[in-house]
Design a protein around this nucleic acid. Structure first.
Length: 421
RNA sequence: GGAGACGUGGGUGAGUGGUUGAAACCACCGCUCUCGAAAAGCGGCAUACCGCAAGGUAUCGGAGGUUCAAAUCCUCCCGUCUCCGCCA
C-alpha cells in the first residue's frame, strides 16, 4: 500500500511505475475518486459536528419542550447523515479496492521488460561443471541412489508429491543446519514460523488480492502460506518497535505450500516445482531509509552468494525486470543456480526490498529520533529452499559412476562421508 | 466440542447512556528547587484524517445496529483466561 498523499503528489511517478510493472491502473481516476472521498467526508463530518454540538446542549438543557424540539431536529439531520454516509461508504470501498491495486514504484535501476526472460544478468560465479559423460537430471540421480521416491510420492500426496529418503533426506537436514549455523553466526534470530495463516497476513504482505489462485485455503478460511515471509512479517503487525532494535534480522524456517495453478506443464518431474517444500527465509525490518534498504538488500544477497560459493554451485545474479516484480517490490534480484541437465540457470533464491509497502498494510512502526511514528522498511531473501537447492547439488556434484560427491562444507553434517552412493 | 469470564492510552487500571479522548497511579519529557543529583512541587504526555489556521471528525479488540447522544445497550466476528470434555 502506498500513502495516498504520496500518490497525489507524485501521480506521474506512480503511473509510470505501474506501467513498468505492467499493472493496469488509472492513477488519475484514483485521485478523482479521492477528491470525491474527501468532499463527501467533509460533508459527513460537518453534519456530525452539528449533531454532537446540539446533543451536548440537549444534555444540559432543562427545558423539556425545547429538548424535544432539538431531538426532533436532530432526528432529521441524522437521516441526512445516514444517506451521506451510505454514499461515502460506497466511495471508500471503491477507493480501498483501488488502493490495494496500486503497485509500489520500482527503483529507477529496474530494467524494462515483460517477463523473467527479460531479466538482466548482473554477474555470474563459478565454473560450470564439465562432464565426460551425459549428465543426468536430479530425478534420475535421486531415483538411482534411492534418495527420493516420486512414484509413491504421487500415490500418497498426488501430483508433484515426493518422499525424500536415505541420504536424500539427510541432505535436506544438512543444508538446513549448515544455513542455520551461518545465519545465526551473522546475528540473525532463528525462528520456526506457521504456514497456516489468516487472510490479513496475506493482505499485509501483498499476496492478496491478486495471488489467491496460488494459495491453498482451508474450510475454516485460513490459508497455507507459500513462504515463511508471510507469518514472519506479520509477527510485529500493529506494533511500535524500538528504533534501537532495528534492523531486525530473522532466519525463518517453515513449510511452504504452492498450488502452482497455471504451471501444470512445467517441471512436471522431480523436486524443482512442488506443492509442498521447506524453506529458510531471511526477513529484515529496518528504519525508513532508502539507503538503508539498499544497503541491506545487497547484504542479504551477498549472504546467499557467499553460501553458494562455499557450496560450490555455479550461479548467476539477475536483476528482475519491471514485469517480473511483485506488487510491493521496489527491486528484486533472483539468484539462479546452474542446472547441468537443463543446460541453464534456474531460480533458487529471490531477494527483494519493499520500502514501507508491506509495513503500511501491516501497521508496523517505530519512533524516529524526533519521536515521530514512521513505518519500518522490510526486505526478504530466500536462504535455503529445499527442494531446489538440493536438486542443484545433486546435478552439479554427480560423478561418472552415478554417485554424488558431497560438498566439502556439508560433509560434517552428513556423517563425514565423501559421497552419496 | 460444552459452560463461564474478560478485551480501555507505553504499563497498571477507573469508568455501565449525556461537556469522557477518557480518572488515578507508574513510566517518560520539560521547568522550579540544587554546586549537581535525589526528593518535592508545577506543567506536558494517544493515533489517524481534513484544514493555512482556529478548529473539526473518527478511534476504548474488530464489524454492524439501537439512540438526539455509546467505552457504556444489542448482534456477529476475532482474541485471551478459567472449568469440563477430548487428545497427547
Amino acid at each position: 500500500m502506498l500513502d495516498i498523499k504520496f500518490i497525489r503528489e507524485n501521480k506521474e511517478i506512480v503511473q509510470e511505475g505501474a506501467k513498468k510493472k505492467l499493472v493496469d491502473i488509472d492513477i488519475e481516476k484514483l485521485v478523482t475518486l479521492d477528491d470525491e472521498r474527501l468532499k463527501q467526508l467533509k460533508e459527513v463530518e460537518d453534519l456530525r459536528s452539528e449533531v454532537n454540538k446540539v446533543s451536548n446542549n440537549i444534555a444540559r438543557d432543562q427545558d423539556p419542550v425545547l429538548k424535544n424540539q432539538l431531538i426532533e431536529e436532530m432526528r432529521i439531520v441524522k437521516e441526512d447523515i445516514k444517506q451521506k454516509e451510505e454514499k461515502l461508504k460506497i466511495i471508500i470501498e471503491e477507493w480501498q479496492k483501488m488502493m490495494l491495486q496500486v503497485p509500489n514504484v520500482p527503483d529507477i535501476s529496474v530494467p524494462d521488460g515483460k517477463s523473467d526472460e527479460e531479466n538482466l544478468e548482473l554477474r555470474a560465479w563459478g565454473e560450470k561443471p564439465v562432464f565426460d559423460f551425459t549428465p543426468k537430471d536430479h530425478v534420475a540421480i535421486a531415483e538411482n541412489l534411492d534418495l527420493a521416491d516420486f512414484e509413491r510420492g504421487t500415490k500418497v500426496s498426488g501430483f508433484r508429491g515426493y518422499f525424500m529418503k536415505n541420504d536424500g533426506a539427510l541432505l535436506f537436514f544438512a543444508l538446513w543446519q549448515y544455513f542455520l549455523d551461518y545465519f545465526v553466526s551473522q546475528g540473525y534470530t532463528p525462528m520456526i514460523v506457521p504456514s497456516l495463516v489468516r487472510k490479513e497476513t496475506l493482505m499485509g504482505t501483498g499476496y492478496i488480492p491478486g495471488g489467491e489462485d496460488d494459495l491453498y485455503k482451508t474450510q475454516d478460511g485460513e490459508y497455507l502460506a507459500g513462504t515463511g515471509e508471510v507469518a514472519m512479517m506479520s509477527y510485529y503487525s500493529g506494533e511500535v518497535l524500538q528504533k534501537e532494535s532495528l534492523p531486525k534480522k530473522f532466519i525463518a524456517f517453515s513449510s511452504c505450500f504452492r498450488r502452482e495453478a497455471g504451471a501444470h506443464g512445467k517441471d512436471v518431474k522431480g523436486i524443482i516445482r512442488v506443492h509442498e517444500f521447506f524453506k529458510l527465509e531471511q526477513i529484515l525490518l529496518c528504519e525508513a531509509s532508502h539507503e538503508e534498504s539498499v544497503k541491506l538488500h545487497e547484504e542479504i544477497t551477498n549472504h546467499v552468494e557467499h553460501l553458494m560459493q562455499e557450496l560450490g554451485i555455479p550461479y548467476r545474479i539477475v536483476v528482475n525486470c519491471g514485469g517480473d516484480l511483485g506488487l510491493g517490490q521496489v527491486k528484486k534480484y533472483d539468484i539462479e543456480a546452474w542446472m547441468p541437465s537443463q543446460d541453464k540457470y534456474r531460480e533458487t533464491h529471490s531477494s527483494s526490498y519493499f520500502h514501507d509497502f508491506q509495513t503500511r498494510r501491516l501497521n508496523i512502526k517505530y519512533r524516529d529520533e524526533n519521536e515521530k511514528l514512521k513505518y519500518v522498511h522490510s526486505l526478504n531473501n530466500t536462504a535455503c529452499a529445499t527442494s531446489r537447492l538440493p536438486a542443484a547439488i545433486l546435478e552439479n556434484y554427480q560423478q561418472a559412476d552415478g554417485t554424488v560427491k558431497i560438498p566439502e562444507v556439508l560433509k560434517k553434517y552428513m556423517g563425514g562421508k565423501d559421497f552419496i552412493k
